[in-house]
Amino acid sequence: MSTNISTTLDTVTIFFEGKSLTVPADISVAAAVLGPGHAGHTGKNPVMDDNRAPVCLMGVCFECMMEIDGIPNQQSCLITVREGMKVKRQNTLREKY
């Protein structure tokens, strides 16, 4: 049994790594990309360089950092999706600070 929630709620369309995703209008970016668009990871750990994805979904673990509308280093679990939002994995390992 499955329920297509998009028929019962308002939706928005966001772009995850260029791919369009239609998701409920009031969910977090992390929740959106953990759904149908999730492909293993949303970023990389800057120390270990290994793949990471949202864990706590409440702003504590800082594993869900993503680039949102061109601004890197956003906590995707604390940001609500907006129509047309462009979301990218955070893979930038900076060498200089």
Binding site: P46, V47, N73, R94, K96, Y97
Partner: peptide, 9 residues
């Protein structure tokens, strides 16, 4: 206070 993680800089 504690910041997010950074490489070994």
């Amino acid at each position: 206070f504690l910041t997010e993680r950074v490489p070994d800089i």
